[in-house]
């Protein structure tokens, strides 16, 4: 049944990475992305690869799962590789196919861009696989809360995301039920041309919207009855506190960035 769908791709495990403060994980991901784009040389990629491998190892995630996260990207990867391979230009000819010339610069660029993509996807998968969506929301709210000064609704945004996460399974189940109820009245959601199929969605979408609005009204009242009045004066069940491991992770990432920059000055490949 639809009840059992998993939201996000959280993979439960007991690991150092799972336990890191979500704020730290978000910031580190940003730093990591910066490092991936800063890195000029292939030798720098080795450093990043080592860092990533260590993080993956510590996360206790099955390797299969990580590989699976790259899989949807395989066509873009191949495309990027080929595009860079032949259209970079450059002077060091490796192979002349007549209709295209393979240069050393092209090959290096192709490897560079493909690796960047892989690293980006792996890095962000590492975040979503080791962090529950709610925790992520929590981390985002805390990170963005300084922006409240300029009236950025950090709390409201996080509350909205939490409620969405809570209600997506409920609404999916409801959609399934309504779809079946309309099918029982001879509705056909599966065949027909595009326009017909779009029209066939009306008997599903109208009841779904009506229900979602009713639920929203009910929920607003229930929240009010439980003394909800916005983020002001609110305490939290989970208080995020930086632990020793959080500082270690920050330190390690800082070292990576420094190394990547320094290494870029020393080596040229």
């Amino acid at each position: 049944m639809l009840k059992n769908i998993t939201l996000g791709q959280y993979y439960p495990a007991e690991s150092v990475v799972h336990r890191l403060d979500p704020r730290v994980k978000i910031v580190l991901l940003i730093a990591f992305v910066a490092a991936v784009f800063l890195v000029p040389n292939l030798s720098g990629f080795v450093l990043i690869a080592l860092y990533l491998a260590l993080a993956c190892k510590l996360s206790k995630l099955p390797v299969k799962l990580l590989i699976k996260s790259i899989k949807p990207l395989r066509f873009i990867l191949i495309f990027t590789f080929i595009l860079n391979l032949f259209f970079t230009g450059g002077t060091t000819e490796l192979l002349n196919l007549g209709f295209a010339v393979l240069t050393k610069e092209g090959l290096l660029n192709a490897i560079r861009y493909s690796l960047r993509l892989v690293f980006l996807v792996l890095g962000s998968s590492l975040l979503t696989l080791t962090t529950q969506p709610v925790t992520l929301t929590d981390g985002l709210e805390r990170l963005l809360s300084p922006l409240k000064v300029i009236h950025f609704p950090a709390h409201e945004m996080a509350m909205m995301m939490t409620i969405a996460l809570r209600f997506i399974p409920t609404l999916l189940e409801e959609a399934d039920k309504i779809m079946k109820a309309q099918s029982a009245r001879g509705s056909d959601f599966e065949t027909g041309r595009l326009l017909e199929r779009v029209k066939a969605m009306v008997p599903l979408l109208v009841p779904l919207f009506v229900s979602a609005f009713r639920r929203a009204g009910d929920l607003a009242m229930a929240m009010e009855a439980r003394c909800y009045h916005g983020g002001e004066g609110r305490t939290r069940l989970h208080v995020l506190k930086m632990q020793k491991n959080d500082w270690i992770a920050i330190g390690a990432t800082a070292v990576l960035i420094v190394l990547v920059i320094v290494e870029g000055r020393i080596f040229s490949v």
Partner: peptide, 8 residues
């Protein structure tokens, strides 16, 4: 059940 939710 709750068939009224299918009205559109």
């Amino acid at each position: 059940q709750y068939a009224e939710t299918q009205l559109f």
